[in-house]
Write a protein that binds this DNA or RNA. Sequence first.
DNA 1: AGAGGTCGCGCC
DNA 2: AGGGCGCGACCTCT
Length: 537
Amino acid sequence: MADLASVVREREQAGPRWVWDDTAHWYPPLLAAGVRVQRCHDLRLCHRILRGTALAPGSALALAAPGPWDEAATDTPTPSGPSLFDAFDEDGFGEEGVADGGDLVDGLVMGADDGVAGELARQLAAVAGSSAPGRLRLLLAAESTGALIAAEMHHDGMPWDAEVHDALLTTLLGPRPPAGGRPARMEELADQVRAALDQPGLRIDSPPDLLRALQQAGLAVSSTSKHELREIEHPVVAPLLAYKKLSRLLTANGWAWLERWVHDGRFRPDYVVGGVVTGRWATNGGGALQLPAQVRGAVRADPGWALVVADAAQLEPRVLAAMSADVAMAAAGRQADLYQGLVDAGTVETRQQAKYAMLGAIYGATTGVSAALMPRLTRAFPQAIAMVEEAARTGERGDVVSTWLGRSSPRPSATWQAARDAAGSEGADPADVRAARQRARDWGRFARNFIVQGTAAEWALCWMASLRRRLREIDGRPHLVFFLHDEVMVHSPADVAEEVAAAVRESAAEAGRLLFGGFPVEFALQVAVVQGYDEAK
DNA sequence: AGAGGTCGCGCC
DNA sequence: AGGGCGCGACCTCT
């Protein structure tokens, strides 16, 4: 194993695609040895996609009994070292896009274990025999590149200034208390809450106790949630909400978090590629995908460096416009602000209405302002709305829907199906029927959102993969340090930051072409070159 | 004491 | 209002 790194380093110059069972297993030690690879095929991640895809339901892979490749990453005993394929193809991020992703691999197996070679053969066969090989090739390449990026971002880390963070905590909470103690500012607020409720001994951190105390004080609340409290007029509300906010900061991103997650000026979250059913990433610990705006000021570029922060504006509506080929919606997105585009087109009166209406279409609003706007949206964008409605009905039936590139939704649980069957039988209990209808509608909303959120995740992966390739051509080693669904951050030498910003824009355009070919949808970005993350947006 | 469930809230 | 998450704290059950 000692010379695995040198073997990989040497062969890497030929530009191969490495095939291995698990990027998260093989790549970190290579990175530690200073080796970067350009391309890989992650068999575990790709297996999961191919196992579930509705584009190749009859493949040998899909029909096989569950095996080791279906296990979660941590449980998988590593069967062998990585295999090297001298790949001569374009990697799915070439010019072909979904029409023709090129051959996945084309070459020679070096020292492959039967398990790895056999699995690769099954995957290639599943792709080749699918109803859309080009899309699946692109998806598998994007997913695998995502795995490389996740490992690299963990290795490089997000620049994090612990002193800034500590100062911020001290300002908001007071000095760090001894272990287990409550910071001074929180203690003051807790006292105010107890006084306002006339409950000197109240344990404010216990929701049941707090709820009882609120009700005894005459407040008409059914929970202690922020949302409900905000509606109430009572002296307890202001200090209690302030307490909750500080309490959240302390427990989620306080000093303990800082000690656990930030070392040597870097925050290194464990990304879980494809950790969400829709294809979005998740994280394991550290809460990297929920970094509150409050602490973003601690993310600071190194001296002489800058942060290039970019996020895709209204990504999901634009994705919906493209995948449904709704030219009217695409036209509304021809400007930087798609929501304003809806106003200008006369679909709705205000930007806020446009936003609520679009979110309602994508999430499946059934009541309120958002639902009320749906008829206008349907008139203006019949094709886009028809697509999400169709997905919702498919979900309500318990059937599978798929993203643009072919990641398919899970089937509803056995419980779900049993409830549906029971409700459909002769003389079913009306309560059961109502419950089953509710569950059906819930799954319909899930399916509706799945196709849009999942396709947006695919666009984002392609965006990031394209950007990663472009960054290699820029001097000074600018590198990705953060990814958040529709947002990326590059840590870049200050003197090439504008070059990086341009690469970010070019990559977004390339991602759009890769997925949607010539369809005239634009993926507008907000790009900022900043020193601290809090200066972006 | 530890496991699992729920709440509440942060992000998109 | 609707979709997707992770996580810490509390609570309950074993």
